[in-house]
Simulated scan of single mutants.
Amino acid sequence: MVNYRYLGNSGLKITELTYGNWLTHGSQVENEQARACVNAALDVGITTFDTADAYANTAAEKVLGEALKGERRESLEIFTKVYFPTGPKGPNDVGLSRKHILESINGSLTRLGTDYVDLYQAHRFDHETPLEETMLAFADVVRQGKALYIGVSEWTADQIRAGAALAKELRVPLISNQPQYSMLWRVIEGEVVPASEEAGLSQVVWSPVAQGVLTGKYLPGKAAPEGSRGTDDKGGKGMISRFLDDQELLERVQGLKPIADELDLTMAQLAIAWVLQNANVAAAIIGASRPQQVVDNAKASGVEIPTELMARIDVVLGDKVVSDPARTAQSSPATRPV
């Protein structure tokens, strides 16, 4: 069964593998299959689920809510997010204004079929809204009982420090950041992780297998496997293309297989276990288009990778690892997306 970890400097425990439905529910995966994946997650002991109002333009939240219907609410940890355009995508259907936050939480709760979410996250930093307005709105969501904790996603170290200072002043629990993190994408290590540790936040990381590249199924010089994310025109292909276009990187990834074999892991399990070696990581978000993927990935929970093998991973990947802290700032649009 999947292990639990504390989320940030709080008493909340979450499963170190969290089931997420970005790019799957409401888009790539039919609803019946999505429910089967959620059931598989529950069967292996995953109780933490992450979504966002923008996923499939609100459809993903509804699919997740229906899949969890009938489960004991107190035994689940449900996360969602706000920022990106939703609905008709009008001028106020985006961002972190007070209006959008307070309206969006109500829509999310309705779609998820719950009275509250355990964690409500700012999906990106909003450069067009004063941070004080955003944090006060989140504080009001917590005081209204519609969220128990708040978090952020892809915020820089300075943004995390500023947000944490306001959260402390407003006496609301800001406990997490949700960044991209994998063997290949380590931009949070230099600045974001230290700032988070100072502020009492931990990471709930997305794309621990680098959109599937670290599974090893994308072979250098070969076409992407049929039915994989690399062939999906609904969004997956665009996200993964930056990796697939680098043949040397794909060759380096194949060099990880002997390390996975030595640990009796699949390459995907190795990749997930790798992010969990970081003490500031509370959970790795896994997605799935088939229930068996959930079952397989769950075996990464509790794995300890010896120091010498962690060092070998670094040698194998070499200069293909992206570590520049400045890349985090590029994740939040300078102006609100439309």
Rank of each mutant, 00 (worst) to 15 (best):
V94E: 04
G95I: 14
S97Y: 04
R98Y: 12
R98I: 08
H100I: 05
H100C: 04
I101S: 03
I101M: 01
I101L: 06
L102R: 13
E103A: 10
I105W: 01
N106G: 12
L109N: 07
L109A: 06
T110K: 14
R111M: 06
R111Q: 03
L112E: 03
L112H: 05
L112W: 08
D115T: 11
V117P: 03
D118G: 01
L119I: 15
L119H: 06
L119E: 07
L119T: 04
Y120T: 10
A122T: 09
A122I: 04
H123T: 09
D126I: 08
D126L: 09
T129A: 07
P130S: 11
L131T: 05
E132L: 01
E132C: 01
E133A: 02
T134H: 01
T134I: 01
M135K: 05
A137N: 07
A137W: 11
A137H: 09
F138K: 03
A139N: 08
V141M: 04
V141Q: 10
R143A: 07
R143Q: 10
Q144G: 12
Q144L: 15
G145T: 08
A147V: 09
A147K: 04
V152W: 11
V152C: 15
S153K: 04
S153Y: 14
E154L: 10
E154T: 14
W155D: 02
W155F: 15
T156W: 02
T156S: 14
A157E: 11
A157G: 14
D158I: 08
D158W: 13
A162F: 09
A167L: 05
A167K: 06
K168P: 06
K168H: 13
E169F: 13
E169C: 13
E169N: 14
L170I: 07
L170V: 02
Q178R: 08
P179W: 06
Q180G: 12
Q180V: 14
S182Q: 01
M183D: 03
W185R: 11
R186W: 02
R186V: 08
I188W: 00
G190D: 14
E191A: 13
E191V: 12
V192W: 00
V192S: 01
P194T: 07
P194F: 09
E197S: 08
E197C: 05
E198N: 00
A199S: 13
G200I: 07
G200W: 07
S207Q: 00
Q211D: 12
G212Q: 09
G212C: 08
V213N: 01
V213W: 04
T215Q: 09
K217D: 00
Y218G: 05
Y218N: 02
L219Y: 00
P220C: 13
G221Y: 12
K222H: 11
A223D: 15
A223P: 08
